[in-house]
Design a protein around this nucleic acid. Sequence first.
DNA 1: ATACCAGATGAAACCGTTTACACAAGCATC
DNA 2: GATGCTTGTGTAAACGGTTTCATCTGGTAT
Lengths: 339, 339
Amino acid sequence: MSIRNVAEHSGVSIATVSRALNTPEMVSPETVKRVRRSVDELGYRPNLFAKGLLTRRSRVIGVSLPDIHGLFFSELMRSADDRACELGYHLLVSSNAHRADENPAGGFALDLADGLIVMLTERTRVDLDGIAALDLPTVVVGVDRPGVPVDTISFDNVTGALGAVAHLLEGTPAQRCFFAGGHQGNIDSDERSAAFAEALRRDGHEPTPDQISYGEYSFDWGWNWATRMIQKGLLPGAAVLAANDEIAIGVANAARDYGLSIPGDLRIVGFDDSSFCGCVRPKLSSVHLPVDELGREAVDALVRRLEQPDASPRHSRLATSLVVRDSSRITTDGARHDA
Amino acid sequence: MSIRNVAEHSGVSIATVSRALNTPEMVSPETVKRVRRSVDELGYRPNLFAKGLLTRRSRVIGVSLPDIHGLFFSELMRSADDRACELGYHLLVSSNAHRADENPAGGFALDLADGLIVMLTERTRVDLDGIAALDLPTVVVGVDRPGVPVDTISFDNVTGALGAVAHLLEGTPAQRCFFAGGHQGNIDSDERSAAFAEALRRDGHEPTPDQISYGEYSFDWGWNWATRMIQKGLLPGAAVLAANDEIAIGVANAARDYGLSIPGDLRIVGFDDSSFCGCVRPKLSSVHLPVDELGREAVDALVRRLEQPDASPRHSRLATSLVVRDSSRITTDGARHDA
DNA sequence: ATACCAGATGAAACCGTTTACACAAGCATC
DNA sequence: GATGCTTGTGTAAACGGTTTCATCTGGTAT
């Protein structure tokens, strides 16, 4: 079933069939109608490989992701896919393209894509030279200035963290504020911890080393960290900014397990504003990241670049903002109570 | 940069280059070496469109998903992608292909794919005729017998639910067991509710209508349902099987908000065994679904079918099993206490 | 020496499109 | 009535690979 069959069936040449389908304004209306009918009757669908070979366009966007944690990943993909669909594109996704060298596919099927959305979370993984070598239009998500002239989109971690700390400082002295980070080298965690330190400095307090810890993005690490802090007697009367919600929930669970009340004894703010926040008790305050916006913007930016390959690179930072819930409210009495 | 350049550079014909890269055993070892070097030096990468045009293979698997809920989606995609990567395939994903008719892409870019993995969650969405019309090798995920001769993979909801109810019946009479479902028409929720009813019958109790409710997969619905049940005075001393973890957590939160203890006053079991389970207190018992296995199996099944197009359709059900945590433990004393 | 065969390579056909170019017909212009 | 322009269509050349078939080489059996 090829364009030739359609041509025969409707009594025109293949060129006319092609034009009737792609540029109907160049064909007489009645011919278009006849061709369209043949297409329907025969159930013809153009071969995308042949088309792509010639046009060098597939309307496919490659998405290369690190091994991303659950909720974030799904929300990003959903919004990106929605937007891509609106614009007539499809998403070719691989969370393994990052280790392309050892890929038995023998390299990227991403060559099928018109362009690439690359998400980076680790400083060391910024192998942007490899990406540039693909000479595909690219949008980088998660890094601000990658040192390569490509468009970038990332979250404004700094403003979000500053806001969160300002909120904590309203009820807790700077000396009693702690940061429970992810692993060092993670771009977001590093930015958030730096902003945390900066916020304390602006308040006139130089953070001590034990106010900032690094670990990993997990419940368990949050729980372990908080346990150690509690055993050192540091936590009651303190406030914690966690690098993500999972850590924050781990901290909250440890506090509960050791009989501390939240927010009475310990105030907690997470990062990401994932759907975890509303489901745990007390509800978790968190810095909201507009993940859906990130996905949409990434697709938009890439499509824009596909249309204007020579536009100068844009760098956008998406605003983040604190959502205050129960876990960080200021308690006037200081007495223990469950929220 | 085409195969022709490589041919010139290494002083052989394009046919030899093609063979050196695809079937090196047909070419003299030293020629292979020379061609490989040229490829490296020139940075040649074969054009996948040209290749696909001829071979009718792209090593791309189309994945069509309904609008799936967060954690499940990401876990499925991750395992499918891992497996696809191992086998040298890539994933072309669309959660919008289900509404392909209204798709401005003007149909599937999925035509680029060698085969399709289609996930279905709703009875009404079983538009498998449309899928069959694509005449692409297809694996259906989420339905057992779709009425179309394709491979299917789904979870054994029945065994999981039976096990969960058996566990609940150990400490709670059948009259005080309730099922908090998702919306009717959802395949999993329906199967789980039917299995719940069946389990009570096997225990010699015909479930009354108010023992089985339908709503939606959300914290809020779980909370609202539980609140109504509490107000009717039905819950203390009862046990709840929820159709997924979010509902279960909503129920647990309502119980806590109304001063009921878990599992003392109310025992709860969820479904999915998502990472929520370990992060809430008390930790949530849940029926574990081997989601990673589902993703892997789906890819395996499709690849198997690509290699043997005429094998008879297979239908596999993946085993599920109850993971007992704190939310459903049997309390000997019956006194209120937090786990 | 002849015939035969295996192994390595090249020439050319082909996959299904798009598109540059040519052409014909119809119509207005001078 | 020749000229030019517009509109609709067809012819044929790409696009970049794979694969069939033919050719050439050199070694081995007869």
